Amino acid sequence: MKYVDEYRDGDKARELAARIHNEIDPQRQYRFMEFCGGHTHAIFRFGIHDLMPENLKYVHGPGCPVCVLPAGRIEAAIKLAESEDVILCTYADLMRVPAGKGDSLNRAKARGSDIRMIYSSSDALAVARENPDRQVVFFAIGFETTTPPTAAAIRIARAEGLKNFTVFCNHVLTPPAMLHILSSGEACIDGILGPSHVSTIIGSHAYADCCSLYRMPLVIAGFEPLDVIQSTLMLVRQVNQGRCEVENQYVRAVRETGNQKAQALMAEVFEPRSVFEWRGLGDLPASAVQINAQYALFDAEKRFAMQKMQTADVKGCICPAVLRGISDPDQCKLFATACTPEEPKGACMVSSEGACAAQYSYGRYRSAETRV
């Protein structure tokens, strides 16, 4: 197959689903965590769960970069924008994520702070070039997929001598979060749908410990509906056969060793943090990166002496439990009542990759009927 519509063929989807029904063991439960929010949205958008047997359930994971960023990091960015003469640049989703006491970057912007929505790291560089007399801070977030572009922006800034450009780095790493989920044992799962875009960077070999240490089947899955269904079938077969391997369904994009040029670029600019806080998962060792000494001039945390801030999530929001795979969005009392995409109370309702946003947009009415 070469075209997107081929990966959304309804007849082929039903054929693959029929294979799952034929091969699944009716005497056991199958719980598969879709680690990436892109998979969560595909499952809800295309009604994939409706094609699955009743004893197969998809479990949400922490693979939404906006969702896992703790409120304290957003609070620190707001304080920086309000206390310094800076232009703060970041992505659209992050503008609306609640910080402490219902605050957000959007609200700080409304109060007069110069906070700008951008689409890429190169946009932040452009703002720095256009405003040589102002300090420009790029509030960077994301997993390994978006880390190389941030590294490239920092390297370009040094080459051009952009002394007014810095990065507030919040890039996190997928394998440590996966290993934490498995080691905690909180989420009862039988297999993992591995992220696709992240895997194009880090390669399929990056998940070997998940399988060997925790006896966990893992299949790297593409984002299209046929990708997800085929990957689910591959997981069912691993479970039935007692195998615990890393399999790559997304062979059209993912290689065993990943993108080595991107990895080299990240290694040139970044180094592991000793510890980093994740929303819902807590402080995880070596689970994020920071700008290394060679590029320290472009580290906003050092230039502005930014302090770590602790901020509680909105009372009643169960986003942390959803990210750990132990709760579903519709188990939250705020879901689809006080918390909606228009007035989000938690990060999982904001992001285009958030589980709450996915269920609200594509599945909340079905869930509501089930609760009744």
Results as ranks from 00 to 15, higher is better:
T174E: 14
P176S: 02
A177Q: 06
A177D: 01
I181P: 11
I181M: 09
S184L: 04
G185H: 05
G185N: 02
E186M: 05
E186S: 08
A187T: 10
A187Q: 10
D190T: 03
I192N: 04
I192L: 09
P195I: 07
P195N: 02
S196C: 15
H197N: 13
G203N: 03
Y207G: 00
A208F: 11
C210N: 13
C211H: 05
Y214H: 03
P217C: 07
P217D: 10
V219I: 08
I220F: 01
F223V: 11
F223N: 09
L226V: 06
L226M: 04
D227H: 15
V228K: 15
V228N: 11
I229F: 12
S231D: 01
T232V: 13
L235E: 06
V236Y: 06
Q238D: 00
Q238V: 00
G242E: 00
R243M: 13
C244Y: 14
E245F: 06
V246W: 03
E247R: 14
E247A: 08
Q249G: 09
V251Q: 14
R252Q: 05
A253P: 12
R255D: 00
G258S: 01
Q260G: 02
Q260N: 07
A264F: 11
L265A: 08
M266P: 01
M266Y: 03
F270L: 08
F270E: 05
R273Q: 12
V275S: 09
E277P: 06
W278R: 15
L284D: 05
P285L: 15
A286Y: 15
S287G: 13
V289D: 02
Q290N: 09
I291M: 03
I291G: 11
N292E: 05
N292P: 06
Y295K: 12
Y295A: 07
A296K: 14
A296T: 13
A296F: 10
L297V: 15
L297E: 15
F298D: 07
